[in-house]
């Protein structure tokens, strides 16, 4: 069955989606994540799909919807762990999730988030 883990490091939430997720559990995952973003005043969310077997059009839509919802709430989402097979298949199908920033791995995502949130703070201050 599906396993998901939610980790919090500073102001960053890391959601790892693993294994055999069905459509219903993907949506409840999204729900739980959004609540957690609100409750913990998270600035950045990393969606880790390194252990996910496939990304079909439904999963692609849920991922990009989630990123858009988090953006509306004031956060930034970064997708990590897209393996070569998934990347190839998504391109074959014509699937793209342009709304979501991506990074090669967790380290790169954390670095990117630190940069983005720092930039965000500077621009807020300069207003």
């Amino acid at each position: 069955m599906d396993k998901t883990s939610l980790l919090k490091i500073g102001k960053v939430l890391i959601l790892s989606i693993e294994g055999e997720v069905n459509d219903f559990s993907v949506v409840s995952m999204q729900d739980m994540l959004l609540k957690e973003v609100r409750n913990t005043s998270t600035r950045g969310v990393i969606l880790n799909i390194a252990r996910l077997e496939i990304v079909d059009s439904y999963m692609a839509r849920v991922l990009s919807d989630t990123a858009r919802m988090i953006r509306l709430m004031g956060g930034i989402t970064i997708l990590v762990g897209v393996n070569p097979m998934i990347a190839l298949t998504m391109v074959d199908m014509g699937l793209d999730i342009k709304e979501v920033k991506t990074a090669l791995n967790l380290d790169a995502a954390l670095e990117l988030l630190t940069g983005l949130t720092t930039l965000g703070r500077y621009s807020e201050e300069s207003l």
Partner: peptide, 17 residues
């Protein structure tokens, strides 16, 4: 191959859904 496995599973997922 791993890539073709991924293609097959993805197509099956779409059609089953």
């Amino acid at each position: 191959s791993l890539v073709d496995q991924t293609r097959i599973i993805t197509a099956v997922s779409e059609l089953a859904r």
